[in-house]
């Protein structure tokens, strides 16, 4: 096992394109070309053991696709995902992947869809145990399930019930218990609290922090809610139209955002501290990822865009410890 601070997950040049063209016959008859949606278009980052690395961005920026690529729900179009030094994209068979699948798990957004409605909670939680053949007898499965349910703040008897008997927050606890049942080291959390009420969100975020400390977990946390990201993250990557535009530790990203898009996002956060700061109105909307603007994808909405931004896509370069993809920052204009 790698030591703390060493990367547990490394993503190199990762890209995933989706073919969103119409069926062949319709395309031929209507004379339309193939359409490709570049959901993720070449991103690099590393997640260190024990930290919470977050990806933030608006809908359609590709953050959920990254999460799904890492846990193997999508196959990358190109690029590599290394887990503990092993290139997962090079592992062909189910059997070869199994040891790594056990060590990483995922928590989903919608607690009403992520639990099979026809299964009892104890079977849902025990499924990874059985799939990875982690315990031998029925007795120990039951014991482990009870232990897991208690660990996430439910009662051991709750295993007998069906998902519909629980509230959204309790269901998310069941999802977490299930994710933890294989003793993973790394959890991918895709908008785990977006479907929950704020008071329940606080319960789940606190639970996730407690579990991280207790079990030494590493999190990849995906959210569109900047205040939540600020609360949970050690480091943050900001995504826009399939690319990373800024990667920095949470402190400096939120105190001193560099990329114009990061600044824009921070301006849109509601002012709950009632400082009288007005939300900056942002011109324009996120362009379609099927036909992204040339050059820097953000240039049509950027107040600082120059000629170079319209022509040339900026690379993610280091500036004062942060990684920023912006010609303006590179040229010292911003």
């Amino acid at each position: 096992m790698a030591e703390a601070g060493q990367p547990i997950v490394e993503v190199v040049g990762l890209a995933r394109y989706f073919d969103v063209s119409k069926p062949w016959l319709a395309r031929v008859l209507q004379g339309q070309p193939r359409l490709t949606l570049k959901a993720v278009d070449g991103i690099d980052f590393a997640i260190r053991r024990g930290e919470t690395f977050s990806l933030v961005g608006e809908s359609g920026c590709g953050k959920s696709t990254v999460a799904r690529l890492i846990v193997g729900l999508h196959r990358p179009t190109r690029g590599h995902i290394r887990f503990d030094g092993v290139d997962l994209t090079a592992l062909g068979t189910r059997a070869a992947q199994a040891p790594f699948r056990r060590r990483m798990q995922m928590i989903f957004q919608d607690p009403f869809a992520s639990l099979n409605p026809r299964w009892r909670v104890r079977d849902i939680v025990a499924e990874p145990l059985r799939a990875f053949a982690l315990v031998a007898t029925g007795e120990t499965v039951a014991g482990r399930v009870a232990e897991l349910l208690t660990q996430v703040g439910l009662s051991a008897n709750d295993g007998e019930k069906y998902p519909h008997e629980f509230s959204g927050g309790q269901r998310q606890r069941i999802s977490i218990a299930r994710a933890l049942s294989g003793n993973p080291e790394f959890l991918v959390c895709d908008e785990p609290t977006s479907a929950l009420d704020v008071s329940v969100q606080a319960q789940i975020l606190n639970l996730m922090k407690d579990l991280q400390r207790r079990l030494g977990l590493t999190y990849l946390f995906i959210s569109h809610n900047l205040a939540v990201i600020d609360h949970v993250s050690d480091r943050v990557g900001v995504m826009y139209l399939g690319r990373l535009c800024e990667v920095a530790d949470a402190q400096s990203l939120f105190r001193r955002p560099r990329h114009p898009y990061t600044r824009l996002l921070l301006d849109t956060i509601p002012d709950l501290a009632m400082t009288g700061r007005a939300r900056g109105p942002v011109a324009g909307e996120v362009p379609s990822p099927i036909a992204p603007p040339p050059g820097c994808a953000f240039h049509p909405r950027c107040p600082h865009a120059g000629e170079r931004c319209r022509l040339e896509a900026p690379a993610l370069l280091e500036h004062d410890g942060a990684l920023i993809a912006c010609h303006g920052v590179e040229e010292g204009r911003l």
Partner: peptide
């Protein structure tokens, strides 16, 4: 397309 199916795929079920 529901997430419980994705959850089953994540643990590598056939």
């Amino acid at each position: 397309n529901k997430e419980y199916v994705a959850a089953a795929r994540v643990i590598g079920l056939h």
